[in-house]
Amino acid sequence: MIKLEKVNKWYGDYHALNDVTGSVAKGEVVVVCGPSGSGKSTMIRTLNRLEEIQKGDIQISGKSIYGPGVDINKLRASIGFVFQQFNLFPHYSVRDNITLSARKVGGMSVAQANALAEDLLNKVGLSHKIDAMPANLSGGQQQRVAIARALAQRPPLILFDEPTSALDPEMVGEVLAVMKQLASEGMTMVVVTHEMGFARDVADRIWFMDAGEILEDTTPQEFFTAPRHPRSRKFLEDILQRSVV
């Protein structure tokens, strides 16, 4: 479904992504982890061209996203993206947040879009908040609405950029629960996160990134028991010492 081939990105002189290569099959859940500054957020943002690359290629569903006839807006409408800071639109209600793209890009009628919104909010457990304003929701609720907003695009693939890092600890669980449910329904997901418990329970593969490179691309079992690279071993030691995993 997704193929990265020797992707390179520079910010001026800083080499943010170095020959990044990997693939994600349909229905797979890939968790990307690593220390801060490793390029994981940059990498996931190149997948929907929020960041541009200077060398290499990225293919989604077999077609390069930098191909000649690619409509960048149509591309993005077919990929769901969930941000660390939720980025809900504060001047729209929950309902309008969810239906905006469906109506303006997908061409859905208001009635169709509303039905979709109700359906999705039910799925994330927030039907009763359909007409609330984002300012009146907790962080965990806002992020769940953000996930519903991404789902409203009916994407075959959803990208998550540290979805729980900005949440208070007691709200992390409700968001991870929604993500687990999506995974069990067969959604293709790439998730940048520090939540190792989620990685162990839900991921099909783990990519460990450091200094702009993918150092490990293995199953969770292999990663947690016998990581190959010394830097991934160090990362695991640091993480496992602190976390209640």
């Binding site: 993005r76 800071q85 991404a150």
Partner: peptide, 18 residues
């Protein structure tokens, strides 16, 4: 406005003017 607003809007497929 926070950068994230434009990013979220573009990420959901809206064009620059939309």
């Amino acid at each position: 406005l926070p950068r994230g607003q434009m990013e979220a809007a573009r990420a959901s497929g809206l064009s620059y003017w939309q």
